[in-house]
Simulated assay, not measured.
Amino acid sequence: MRELAKEELNDCKERLIEIENELKILLLPKDPNDEKNVIVEIRGGAGGDEAALFAAELFRMYSRFAERNRWKVDMMNLNENGIGGFKEVIFMIDGNGAYSKLKYESGVHRVQRIPVTESGGRIHTSTATVAIMPEAEDVDVQIDMNDCKFDVFRSSGNGGQSVNTTDSAVRLTHAPTGIVISCQDEKSQLKNKDKALKILRSKLFELEQQKAHDAEAQARKSQVGTGDRSEKIRTYNFPQGRVTDHRIKFTSHRLEDILDGDIYEVLDSLIAADQAAKLSNMQNEL
C-alpha cells in the first residue's frame, strides 16, 4: 500500500509540474499576428534550374499542408522557368491560425541531391528562400498612393508565349522603399492591381515588424531563429532521405512525407522550442 501511495504521489507531482508549465505557456505574450492569413514568397536561390525546381517542390509542400488543414491557397504571382521550376512564386494561404503555424518557415531552405540534369551522378547543393508574411489590413499599414507607380503590360507564359491579348499584368513600384511587385495571375488588370497592393501592404508591415524586433534585440535572442531570409534554417538531403532543421537540431528521415505536406512534427518541435526559450527568458527576468 505504501508503494502504491508513493507512486500516486510521484504521478501527482509530475502532473503538477506539467500543469504549471502549461499555465506558464498560457501566460506568455501572444503574437497579435498569429490568427492572420499569410502571404508566402518563395524564390529559387543558388543552383539555377535545380533551385527553381526545388522552389516548386516547396510550393507544393506548403500547398499540401494547407490542404491538410482545409485552408485555401490563392496564387498571386508566378514566374516559371519552362521546365516545371519556379523562379519566384507568391501565394496567400487563407486559414485560421495560418501565421501561428508557418511563421518559423522564413529563411533559406537547402536541398542536397543529384539533379535530373546531372549526367555524372554528383550530388549538388541548391537553395530557395522562403518569406512568410502575415496578411496586413488597411488598419495595419496605410499606403500613400502618390508613392506608388503602376505599369501595365501583357501577361506571358513560358518562353514569352502570350497568355492573353490585353495589358492586364501589373507592375507596382513603391518609391520610398524601392519595392517592385509584379502580378499577372489574373486576367483582370484591376484584380492584379489589388493583389499587388495586398503584397506591398504585407511587405511594408513586415519591414515595420523587423524594425520593432531590432529594437528588442534581447527578446529576439529567446526566439527560434530571427525570421531573416538569409538565415539557413533547413536541409533536405535526398540521398539519406533526411530533413534537418539547424535551429533546433531536429532531424527526421521522413523526407517524402514532409515534402508531401506532413510538416506537423517539424512545426510542433519549433513551436515547443520557441516556447521553452521564451519561458527560460521570462524566468531569468523575474
Results as ranks from 00 to 15, higher is better:
M1P: 07
E3R: 10
I17P: 01
E20H: 11
E35D: 14
E41W: 03
G45K: 06
A52K: 15
F54H: 02
R60K: 13
R60V: 07
M61V: 01
R68V: 03
N69P: 00
M75K: 09
N79P: 01
G82F: 00
G84Q: 03
I90D: 01
F91D: 01
M92A: 14
I93K: 03
Y99W: 09
Y104G: 06
Y104E: 03
E105C: 12
S106E: 03
G107W: 04
Q112P: 01
V116E: 14
R122H: 08
A131Q: 02
M133V: 08
E137A: 13
D138V: 08
I143P: 00
I143Y: 01
N146D: 11
V152I: 04
S155L: 00
S155G: 14
D167S: 13
S168H: 00
S168G: 04
P176F: 10
V180N: 11
K195S: 06
S202V: 03
E206K: 12
L207A: 12
H213C: 03
D214K: 09
A217M: 03
K221A: 13
Q223S: 09
K232S: 12
I233A: 05
R242D: 00
T244Y: 00
D257V: 00
D262P: 03
S269F: 07
I271E: 13
D274E: 09
Q275I: 04
A276E: 15
A277K: 15
K278S: 09
